[in-house]
Nucleic acid binder design. Structure first.
Lengths: 229, 229
DNA sequence: GAAAAATCGAGAAATCGTTCTCGATATTCT
DNA sequence: AGAATATCGAGAACGATTTCTCGATTTTTC
């Protein structure tokens, strides 16, 4: 997040009813994509089963922790053997909602927005951009990486008619809240926020911050520490 | 993890000596950028002092937590008044190392890399791209957002001569480790990893994952939960 | 000038997440 | 077939982070 960063954990959780969201710890949620990535390479190498010992070793985690994380997705393993790789991938992907690809709108087709539109890899994670929006008239009517760019005034109507549920926000800080309001008016239920601003949403919408500036801060802080040794 | 993501907290911490890094909790580090952002808007509005009560309310956090976070940066407040906004911003920025801008290399000038190069905002967070590198010969010799793109073979020598300490990795998963090796050979001490792959580094280098796919996963998971109500 | 109100800062308590321990189970080896 | 080994899964122990409590301090009000 963001800078928003500020409150990532609290924030995203706070937006939903307590009971439902806190079921799975956020740290576990953060680790799950990593498992999938590792498992995909295993599958590519023809591996059929894998133990948490094995996963943990590669990812430098505690085997018990991996086991608990995997358990959240509902999979059960076999003692002395481990888990079926194929089944495990399917279990996590399904749990994370990567299977049913979601169509998304992107708001703010600047440098960052353009990059996000061009990042084909998101398809693997169940995200597909179907339209982009920008205030700048010179961008409207064009296509960026195969996605049409519209003016902001078209957003609400299009979102409603296309039944879009995900909005990706890559606008400057000032325009962030305003853009979020439009997205909500269009019926969007989830916002992936790349802007450095905390966004206020209603109870029917979730915001997750991309945390770009948070991780950058951790990097610079760590660099300072490591240079001073 | 992940791609990275997986082990962010553990990972970055693990790379440094225990004592130094664990001083400030990572959750606090993640929240600090958010404070700065909020404080900047306060300053813009002419506000001169602010209390943790005030900050916490806006960011939906616990006032005590905010107070503890701020204390890590070394600032001290005045009872009944709060903190001097200007001084507080300076304190956090200095703590996070945003003042002394760091020169960085970017590896992988694809869609994501291009976007990062064009994101002027990073300058505010003490990051400046001075060169980019890519395998693709058609990109070499050109400039992207004012930054020259070189072939990978120039990386090590240039990094050494320019005394670069930060590398930003936006290459596909397969090339990530290899690119990281080059960066380390060039003397780079900190890597901001946007690739969905865990990276192995020596004890003199830190890796911080950008966690793009982690936050996306949290978003999709939350969306699934909220849609099912 | 004294009383009231707001806020900081330090320490205690509670909560959350990670790590450890152990019994149960499936496989492999002899 | 029986013993040894590896791994899962559940619960306990531990550690870290968040939240609560309270005394001290400064400003404002009467």
């Amino acid at each position: 997040m963001t800078f928003n960063t500020t409150d990532d954990a609290e924030r995203s959780a706070g937006e939903l009813s307590e009971s439902e969201l806190k079921v799975v710890p956020e740290p576990s949620l953060r680790r799950l994509p990593g498992y999938v990535h590792f498992l995909r390479t295993l599958r590519q190498r023809g591996r059929e089963v894998v133990s948490t010992t094995h996963i943990a070793k590669d990812l430098r985690l505690d085997p018990t922790q991996v086991r608990k994380d995997l358990a959240y997705t509902g999979i059960i393993g076999r003692p002395k053997v481990g888990y079926d790789v194929e089944e495990l991938i399917a279990s996590i992907e399904s749990f994370l909602g990567w299977n049913n690809s979601s169509d998304a709108f992107l708001v703010g087709a600047g440098a960052l927005g353009t990059a996000l539109l061009g990042h084909e890899r998101f398809a693997e994670y169940g995200l597909r951009f179907v339209a982009a929006f920008d205030q700048d008239p010179s961008k409207q009517g064009k296509e960026i990486h195969g996605v049409s760019v519209f003016g902001m005034h078209k957003l609400v109507d299009l979102a409603r008619r296309m039944h879009i549920h995900i909005g990706v926000l890559s606008v400057p800080a000032q325009g962030a809240q305003e853009a979020a309001e439009l997205l909500m008016e269009g019926g969007i239920r989830a916002i992936w926020n790349f802007s450095p601003r905390r966004i206020e949403v209603g109870p029917d919408t979730v915001v997750v911050d991309a945390e770009l500036y948070s991780t950058l801060s951790i990097l610079k802080r760590n660099l300072t520490l490591i240079m001073g040794r």
